[in-house]
Deep mutational scan, measured.
Amino acid sequence: QTVVIGDTTYHLNNPEAAQQIAKELAKKYGLKVVISGNTIKLK
Rank of each mutant, 00 (worst) to 15 (best):
Y10C: 10
K41A: 09
K43I: 15
K28P: 00
G6L: 08
Q20W: 14
L31Y: 11
D7V: 12
H11F: 13
V33S: 00
K27I: 10
L42N: 02
Q20C: 15
V4C: 15
T2M: 11
I35D: 01
L31W: 10
L12G: 01
Y29F: 09
K41I: 15
L25V: 03
H11K: 05
L31P: 02
D7K: 14
V34L: 07
T2S: 09
A17P: 01
L42W: 05
I40D: 01
G6Y: 08
Y29A: 05
I5L: 07
A17L: 14
K27T: 10
P15A: 13
S36M: 11
K43F: 15
H11S: 06
V34R: 00
I5C: 14
K41S: 13
G37E: 05
I35S: 02
N13H: 11
T2W: 14
V4N: 05
G6D: 05
K23Q: 13
Y10I: 14
S36N: 10
N14D: 13
K27N: 07
G37I: 03
Y29Q: 05
I40M: 01
V4I: 12
N13I: 11
N13Y: 09
K41E: 14
K32T: 14
I35L: 06
L25Y: 04
L12E: 01
E16P: 01
Q19R: 12
E16G: 08
S36R: 06
Y29I: 04
G30K: 08
T39N: 05
K43D: 10
T9D: 02
I40S: 00
V34T: 10
L42I: 10
I35Q: 05
Q20R: 13
G30P: 05
N14S: 14
L31K: 05
K32W: 08
I21G: 00
K43N: 08
K32F: 09
K23P: 00
Q20M: 10
E16F: 09
Q20H: 10
Q1K: 08
G30Q: 05
Q19G: 05
K41M: 15
K23L: 14
A18K: 01
I35E: 01
A22C: 02
K32G: 06
L25K: 00
T8W: 15
I40T: 00
I5P: 03
K23D: 12
Q20E: 11
A17C: 11
Q1S: 12
N38G: 08
Y29M: 03
H11D: 07
G37N: 05
D7Y: 14
V3Q: 02
A17E: 13
T8L: 12
I5Y: 09
V34E: 12
V3R: 00
Q1T: 15
K43H: 13
Q20G: 03
N13P: 14
Y10S: 02
S36V: 13
I40Y: 03
Y10R: 01
G37A: 03
T8S: 07
V4K: 09
K27L: 12
G6M: 08
T9C: 03
T2L: 10
K28M: 07
I40H: 00
T2P: 05
N13F: 08
Q1E: 06
V34F: 10
G6H: 07
V33L: 12
N14A: 06
V34N: 04
N38P: 01
N13D: 13
A26H: 05
N14T: 13
P15M: 13
K32V: 15
K23H: 12
V4G: 04
V3P: 02
Q19F: 14
A18S: 02
V33R: 00
I40L: 04
E16I: 10
N13R: 09
G30M: 06
K43V: 15
I5H: 04
Q19H: 11
N13T: 11
P15K: 10
V33A: 02
V4E: 07
Y29W: 05
T39F: 05
V3M: 06
N14K: 04
I35R: 01
K32D: 11
Q20A: 12
T9I: 13
E16C: 10
T8P: 05
G6E: 05
Q1M: 15
V4L: 07
K27A: 13
E24N: 09
S36C: 15
G30W: 09
I21C: 15
E24T: 09
E24S: 10
Y10L: 14
V3F: 10
G6R: 05
N14Y: 09
H11G: 02
A22T: 02
A18Y: 10
A17W: 10
K32N: 12
I40P: 01
I21K: 06
D7W: 15
Y10G: 03
N38A: 06
V33D: 00
N14Q: 05
A26K: 06
